[in-house]
Write a protein that binds this DNA or RNA. Structure first.
Lengths: 107, 107
DNA sequence: CCAATATACCTCATCTGTCAAGGTAAATAT
DNA sequence: ATATTTACCTTGACAGATGAGGTATATTGG
């Protein structure tokens, strides 16, 4: 990965929620999606991902259920809740505001 | 302040370097400048500021000297070094890259 | 004149998100 | 048979941000 973690810090939850807005998914898949979407410029570390899942679930932003795979490894799916949608909207607004501020400060 | 610290995290040093590119300055002034530039949307906390100064100095990105005020409180001035200019260029490139990545992921 | 506020510096302990390193288990490819 | 891929997870350590505290001088309002 080329982007340092401190710059991406704080965006993990928003990135996850954004993915779940499209459709339910599971950890491994979300991780692959992010790498693909960014042409391997950014890879969420597993530990980071799972700790974000825990925070999001505890906050009521996502719900989880086990997939009914009869073949292959079991998958724990995540789906976004109504609260999660609101949280995402907030995150996004915040990001847009922060982006402008930083652009302004980094002349 | 309206922006959460985790989103700004990692940008402190770049913000300071950017200010020092224009002219030497001191802690208190840099802080005020940032608030003004952002219409009070963002305020660097003092502890954050001074710990960033320490990191920057240790990394050789800035040099410090005491002002010769004969009146008022003493001021410790900071000036950017050649290494600091290079570091700033790197920070800025990184920011632009990160901005695109996040924009891509938060849709 | 005196109290409050502003200028200006600093430190320490704590908090939080990230991540390296480790683990489990099943399926598939070589 | 063995290596790789899919898929999950935990623990401890690290680093930047910050609340809370401190020092000292100058200015301003009542």
């Amino acid at each position: 990965m080329s982007i340092t973690s401190d710059i991406l810090r704080g965006h993990t939850e928003a990135i996850i929620l954004s993915h779940l807005l499209e459709h339910d998914s599971y950890g491994y898949q979300i991780n692959k999606d992010i790498m693909k979407k960014t042409n391997n410029a950014y890879e969420l570390k597993e530990a980071t991902l799972y700790s974000a899942f825990r925070r999001l679930e505890q906050a009521g932003c996502i719900r989880t259920y086990w997939g009914d795979e009869t073949v292959g490894a079991r998958r724990r799916y995540y789906s976004i809740t109504e609260k999660g949608r609101k949280a995402y909207a907030d995150y996004k607004r915040e990001w847009q505001e922060a982006r402008e501020i930083i652009d302004q400060l980094l002349n």
